[in-house]
């Protein structure tokens, strides 16, 4: 006898945490692909610390993607995420996560909080998508009494965001743009060099951004033996140390970025290994993104254009992918 009745047993209703349903209460679009979401989640806003991340599922069939927390405010109960639409999941979020929408799942804060020590002078470096998540570090160091130098990198002036926010907590703030349209012309590594030349007494550098950028930062500081912490964003599923998908090589040791990190010593991280592991699902990412773009075109044909459509995903850039 096969138990056909089992097919009739419904999924148990998801119970809602009191006062929160992961509602999007604010949104800003910084560029064609980068956008900010404010989520009302007081418990998380109270618990989060610099360097931690969350795992988000935007919809029931979605994947679990890790996103570094860009800001958190225990008073208002708001958690801020900055997202770059580079793959299917993030493009879909760009289209669907409008104010009033709800995320299907949001869990965190995950990872070991960054160590905000008693360093007297620090550089907080953010490149691309890493600009937002390094903000909590700048603020925390400042509140700890440190002299904070912010270095952020963008392609061009139009993409710059949060300048005022950073300036509130940075004693010096260096913007680097590829075309020189804002701040200095050059990469964040050039900004680091400017800061290092001016300040021989820097205690620590925190660098968050695409792996290529974090590696370049680590190489810039290595000759000076300047402590450099990077925040790694490998592919994850659970984010709780259970699947081992996020393993990274640090020194000669294998570490799980989700529970041993995400912060590691930038001079010890094997970035080649990280880059290779980030290519793990490149085929599937392409399939999913194309399928999504196609469905958007189909919608567009009947409803006119919408912002969810962008080109193929740039390699090695930004998004901590594929749960």
């Amino acid at each position: 006898m096969s138990h056909d009745f089992l097919h009739e047993v419904a999924e148990p209703a998801r119970q809602v945490r009191e006062g929160s349903r992961f509602e999007v209460v604010g949104r800003e679009d910084f560029s064609e692909s980068t956008f900010l979401l404010r989520i009302h989640y007081p418990l998380l806003a109270k618990a989060a610390k610099p360097g931690q991340f969350v795992i988000v599922m935007s919809q029931e069939h979605g994947e679990r993607i890790p996103l570094t927390i860009a800001d958190f405010d225990p008073d208002s109960g708001i958690v801020t995420l900055v997202i770059q639409a580079v793959g299917k999941t993030t493009m879909e979020m760009q289209q669907n996560c409008q104010v009033g929408a709800e995320l299907f799942s949001l869990v965190g804060p995950m990872g070991v909080p960054s160590h905000i020590g008693d360093a007297a002078k620090v550089i907080c470096v953010g490149g691309g998508l890493g600009v937002a998540p390094v903000f909590p570090h700048a603020r925390a160091f400042k509140q700890n009494g440190a002299y904070v130098i912010g270095v952020v990198g963008f392609r061009t002036r139009q993409l710059v965001f949060w300048e005022d926010k950073f300036r509130n907590y940075c004693d010096e703030f260096i913007i680097c743009t590829d075309d020189g349209s804002a701040g200095i012309k050059g990469l964040v590594t050039d900004g680091i060099k400017v800061a290092m030349d001016k300040h021989p007494d820097i205690d620590e550098v925190i660098a968050i951004g695409p792996p290529v950028m974090m590696r370049a930062c680590a190489e810039t500081t290595r000759p000076h033996k300047l402590k450099t912490t990077v925040s790694l964003n490998p592919v994850m599923v659970d984010g709780t140390g259970m699947c081992g998908g996020c393993r990274v090589k640090v020194g000669e040791k294998m570490m799980f970025a989700c529970v041993d990190g995400p912060d590691f010593d930038g001079h010890q991280v094997d970035f080649d290994d990280l880059a290779n592991r980030l290519r793990r699902f490149s085929e599937e990412e392409k399939i999913a993104a194309e399928r999504w773009s196609k469905s958007c075109r189909a919608v567009k044909a009947t409803h006119g254009p919408h912002p969810g459509e962008t080109g193929p995903r740039p390699q090695g850039e930004g998004e901590p992918t594929a749960g």
Binding site: D238, M242, C243, E284, A288, R291, A322
Partner: peptide, 17 residues
């Protein structure tokens, strides 16, 4: 986990590969 919880076997109808 990918298969049982995230339905990776049903990719691309489910997003997890």
């Amino acid at each position: 986990t990918r298969c049982n919880l995230m339905h990776a076997g049903e990719f691309p109808d489910y997003d997890t590969p």
